Computed example of a mutant assay.
Amino acid sequence: MKGKHINFALILILLIASCSITPKPINYGSDGCHFCSMTIVDKQHAAQFVTEKGKAFKFDAAECMMNHLKEIDVATVSLFLVNDYHSPGDLIDATKATYLISKNIPSPMGEYLTAFESKAIAEKAREQHEGKLFTWTELSNRFDVGQDDKISLK
Rank of each mutant, 00 (worst) to 15 (best):
G3I: 14
E138M: 04
I11G: 07
V41M: 15
Q128R: 12
R142P: 07
T39D: 03
I72K: 07
L79W: 05
F35S: 00
L12A: 15
E138C: 01
T135H: 05
K4P: 03
L10V: 14
M1F: 10
K132I: 13
F8S: 11
D42A: 02
K55N: 12
I40P: 01
K43M: 09
I21M: 07
L100K: 02
V82T: 11
T76D: 15
I26L: 04
Y28I: 04
I105V: 12
D73C: 07
F134D: 07
S152A: 12
Q48M: 08
E138V: 03
A122K: 01
A61F: 01
S18L: 10
H129L: 06
A17S: 14
A47V: 03
E130Y: 12
I92S: 07
D90L: 13
E127Y: 08
S140I: 10
L113Y: 02
M65T: 01
F80D: 06
V77S: 04
M66S: 04
L12E: 11
T76R: 12
Q48Y: 01
L79N: 07
P106K: 11
K55M: 11
Q128D: 10
P25K: 12
F49W: 09
I121R: 13
Y85I: 06
F57I: 07
K2L: 15
E52P: 00
V41Y: 10
A56C: 09
V41C: 13
E71T: 09
G89N: 03
A17M: 15
T98N: 06
N141I: 14
G146M: 03
P106I: 05
L91F: 07
Q48S: 02
I121H: 12
T95L: 09
E63M: 04
A62N: 08
T98K: 04
I6R: 10
S118G: 06
K119H: 13
Q147G: 15
T39N: 05
L133G: 06
S87H: 12
P25L: 09
Y99K: 08
K103H: 12
C36Q: 02
N67S: 12
I101P: 06
A120D: 14
P88W: 01
Q128F: 11
E71K: 08
A75I: 07
D42I: 03
T98P: 08
A62M: 09
M65C: 01
L100M: 02
S87A: 13
I101A: 06
Q44L: 09
I151A: 13
K70D: 08
S107Y: 04
H129N: 11
I26S: 03
G32Y: 00
I26T: 04
S37Y: 02
L91Q: 10
Q147R: 15
K58L: 08
K124H: 08
H34N: 10
L133C: 03
P106T: 08
A94G: 09
V82K: 02
N141E: 14
N7C: 14
K124L: 11
C33D: 00
A56P: 05
N141F: 11
E138A: 11
K150V: 15
